[in-house]
């Protein structure tokens, strides 16, 4: 059981990194970013190419991967999302379909761009330590890379969470998410807040992609499954709830592991959908979400 918990928690960390960004974007713009998985893919490619082709040290390669993700987030916000909310009144009348179409289109564009540039081949990133290395955690033997990657991921996640919870700009992000109109007349520049959120979101997803690339190699569709999982996590945790996303991520990671061990490893990825269906049926607002829907 200990092994299931630890392995599940490790995957949960990466789901949380993806889901936190997705939840932040949903919180401030009330739109789902369907291109979120492609931030993950960008991080995976950057890290894999730097470590494999250019021989950059693994730990150092995480930073450019994060920067590429941040840059991608900033560009997407500036070019594609900003027309959505430039003025509050226009924002009030805007239709969600725009965001769905734009982010879905962007996802397809980036997948096909990766396919054109790198081909349909898999590129595995180098491990933070040689992938064969093993270590003992709570009496369980685990891949040292996975343990180090999840510690690094969890540290970055914690830093991002504390930043949002306690700094001025973090509180500004929360303020915009809670009352966009109120934030504008409290002097908060919601454009800058959106930019920050997309930057954080892109960076977190890219780091997750980088750290997982030795296990799940970079390829054009690398972000598809992690993105779907993060959508499940956000629904499970409660749309827009940051603590909910983190709890939901660890819960999904562990549930998947339980299912893989006790039911079937082959159907491991289907457990996420089962969780999604059950959540929507039994607790549609998620673990920490509010039972409110604007009409």
């Amino acid at each position: 059981m200990m092994e299931i918990l630890v392995t599940g928690a490790i995957m949960g960390t990466f789901y949380a990194m993806l889901a936190l960004g997705l939840s932040l974007i949903f919180g401030i713009l009330k739109v789902v970013n369907f291109a979120h998985g492609e931030f993950f893919m960008i991080g995976a490619y950057t890290y894999a190419i730097l470590t494999r082709t250019f021989g950059v040290t693994s730990f150092l390669a995480v930073l450019p991967a994060a920067l590429m993700g941040i840059a991608a987030g900033l560009i997407v916000e500036r070019l594609l999302m900003r027309p959505l909310y430039q003025r509050y009144m226009e924002w009030a009348t805007l239709r969600d379909e725009y965001a769905v179409i734009v982010t879905f289109g962007l996802s397809l564009f980036l997948i096909n761009l990766a396919n054109q540039v790198f081909g349909p081949y898999q590129i595995s990133g180098a491990g933070l330590v040689p992938l064969r290395e093993r270590m003992q955690v709570g009496g369980v033997t685990l891949s040292t890379h996975r343990v180090l990657a999840s510690i690094l991921g969890a540290s970055i996640l914690l830093a991002a969470y504390l930043l949002i919870k306690y700094t001025y700009w973090g509180k500004a992000v929360q303020a915009v998410a809670q009352n966009r109109f109120g934030a504008a007349i409290a002097g908060i520049d919601s454009t800058r807040v959106s930019l920050i959120v997309f930057g954080i979101s892109g960076g977190l997803a890219a780091v997750a992609g980088a750290l997982l690339s030795p296990i799940f190699p970079a390829e054009p569709f690398a972000g598809a499954f992690p993105a779907v999982k993060s959508f499940v996590v956000v629904v499970l945790g409660g749309m827009g709830s940051l603590p909910g996303s983190i709890i939901g991520a660890y819960l999904l990671g562990i549930l998947e592991q339980v299912g893989a061990v006790y039911v079937s490893y082959t159907y491991r990825d289907t457990f996420a959908f089962l969780v999604l269906i059950l959540t929507l049926l039994l607790r549609p607002q998620g673990i920490l979400g509010e039972r409110v829907r604007e009409v």
Binding site: K171, Q174, Q178, G182, I185, D189
Partner: peptide
């Protein structure tokens, strides 16, 4: 001029609807 810039110029607005952030503390 956008509202967040007007606030710096010394304007303030108390609208009919709430301008508070319900999940932040009173002090925040």
């Amino acid at each position: 001029i956008e509202p967040h810039i007007l606030i710096r110029k010394g304007l303030w607005y108390l609208p009919q609807e709430s301008s508070l952030f319900p999940h932040l503390t009173i002090e925040d």
